[in-house]
């Protein structure tokens, strides 16, 4: 049962996005096929150089960069959102696949869940 978790909330401002990341990693840990799709302000989770120490939070950059090792099948990001937030191969963490048609991508998954 292939799951896609969609994250559209910006990082660190609320817990919804982080909870969804934890859900994805938990699914992967139990060998459930899962992928992550970042859209709208959610793409900012994928930006290099996050330093949330000042707001007493832990960066998720390392976990995301190692997502495939944790068993997450793919890290997808909406190309238009990346463009809107000035993200490109120079400042995106590695392992991100940019996609143009999020609607079509959603069709490929039996179970799709949006973050909180």
């Amino acid at each position: 049962m292939h799951t896609l978790i969609v994250i559209d909330q910006p990082p660190y401002g609320s817990w919804g996005g982080r909870e969804s990341l934890d859900m994805a990693f938990s699914l992967a840990a139990f060998d459930q096929p899962v992928s992550l799709l970042f859209i709208d302000a959610g793409v900012l989770w994928l930006k290099q150089g996050q330093e949330p120490g000042g707001i007493n939070q832990k960066s998720v950059e390392r976990n995301l960069a190692a997502a495939s090792i944790f068993g997450v099948e793919s890290l997808l990001a909406d190309t238009a959102a990346c463009h809107r937030f000035g993200l490109n191969e120079d400042n995106l963490i590695n392992g991100v696949t940019r996609i143009d048609n999020t609607g079509a991508t959603l069709q490929q998954y039996q179970h799709v869940a949006f973050s909180g």
Binding site: K47, Q50, G54
Partner: peptide, 20 residues
Amino acid sequence: STITLPETVYALQEDLRARA
């Protein structure tokens, strides 16, 4: 890039650095 902000804008440094 789709947001235009007014003249006098301040932003909290810790939040900017958190989000790179």
